[in-house]
Every structure is written in structure tokens, then in C-alpha cells.
Amino acid sequence: MKTSRYAHIFFLAPALITLLVFFFLPVLAALLMSATDFDVYALGNFGRARFLFLENYRRALEDPLFWKALFNTFYFVMVGGPLTILVSLAAAVALNAKILRFRKFFRLAFFLPVVTTLVAVAVVWRYLYHPRYGMINYLLSGFGIEPIDWLGDPTWAMPALILLAVWKNFGYNMLIFLAGLQAIPETLYESARIDGANWWQQQFYITIPQLAPTSIFVTIITIIGYFQLFAEPFVMTQGGPLNATLSIVLYLYQQGFRWWQMGYASSIAFILFFILIVLGLVQELVRRRINRGGAV
């Protein structure tokens, strides 16, 4: 038996080196940049950047547009996230129902939006939302609802993006929930029925607790994804009207690549990162608590 002691290095090197150069070192570089006034002048000559310590972070805290972007992003995540998860859970339970026929057809239809190109879909929805000839207002008028200027009215623009996001993304979580549902042993439901539990009770006392680990996973990937909201406002509203759909990543992009305020943009990126880490820790705590509860 002769295997080279260092063979693993050869196999790991290409992936780890690219991850190091294009991912891990840039994280450190971004941290460093966030402490400087790196701008368009520093672009040609890195020496032009001056060290500012936490000045950019202070600037962010005093920047009303940053707060607006932060608020909008939280709005999108806190309303869109739970809505997406509820719809995907309901769809998964429905797809798992024994009486359902044409199961594969429905699963495919529900999943189609997930695989399609976000930018193309956003372009299509932009027209569906059109205040005059858009299909959505036309259908709503059938219920006597007055035309809504979905993307032009600051009140409605964010709900419009949320609706699109739910439509686009629920199918992904649905499949993960479906896998979770199919892993629940049928005998649990059988014994519950023998004890006289009705359908709602079975869902509440068996399905939901059994799905807890899956739900945490789905929640965290949905939230992480939604915090990175970018293409929808970029294509549909450019962050408007009146900055009602300006998201953190869109603001970061504008600061970094339109105004070349790369130091400031890096500090915004790190604030986003920090928020995600806090959420990750919360998720870990919840997971541990549930695991402990499950063992008792």
C-alpha cells in the first residue's frame, strides 16, 4: 500500500487557491478598504487611499439613504421571507396530498419560475405591472379594484417586488419541504388517526414539529438570499420611486461602481455581512434548542 502523503494537496490546490485568491483574501481586503477613503483617485494608484479607521461606518450611520436602503431591505426580507416560506410550505403539503393527481405536472409548473432568468422575469413583470395596459391591473379590475401604479407609487413598489419574489422563489423551498415531508414516517399519522386526530391536528402536532429542522434550513437560505436583493429593483425601478425600493446591495453597487466610493461601499458590504452573521448565530441557537427539545 503506497499512497503519496501529499496527494491530497494536489487535488485540493486548484479549488483552495482560487477560493483563497478570489474569496478569502478579498474578504480581508474589503475589511481593509472599508477603513479607507478608497475612491476613483486611488483606483489608479492605491497609495492615494488614506486610512480612516471607522469613519466610513460612522458616515453610514449618518447617511439617510443608507438607512432608507437598510429599512427597505428589512421590509423586503421580513415580509417577503415569511410569505415565501408559508406559500412554499402550503404548496408542499398540497403536493404531498394523497388525493392529488397529475402530481408531476403540478410540481413542474410550480417550480418553473425558479429556474428561469431573474432579469428576464423582472422585465416581463415590469409590463404585467403596467398601470394602464398591465395584466395584473386588468385582472384586478374584474374585482372592481381601481388601477394601481405598482412600480410608480412609493407605497406599492416594494409590495410589487415582494409579490414577484414570492412567485419566483417559492418553488425552491417547496421542493425542500417536500423532501422533508416525505421523510416523515406514515405510521405517525396512522396512530394519530387511530387516536381520533383530525387533519388540522395532524398537521399541527406531527407535520410542523417534524419539519422543524427543514424549516430552519429553508428560513436561513431564504433570508440570506433576500438580503441580497438587487436585480429586481435594478431592472424594474432603479431603486425608485423616491428610493422606495433602494436595497442595500443596490446602494452598495451605486456607491462602488457608479460613484467609485469603494471604501464607503466596502463598509456597507461589511454591515450586510455583519447582519447575516448575527442571523446565522440566531439560527444556530434555534437549531440547538430544537435538537435538545427533540431529544427529550
Binding site: V27, M33, I224, F227, L252, M262, S266
Partner: peptide, 11 residues
Amino acid sequence: IIPGQVTMLPV
């Protein structure tokens, strides 16, 4: 968990 946007500028 590190969002890609963090590394975007240095890359």
C-alpha cells in the same frame, strides 16, 4: 454565509 457582495470590490 459570507455574501458575495463583500468580495465584489476587491475582486
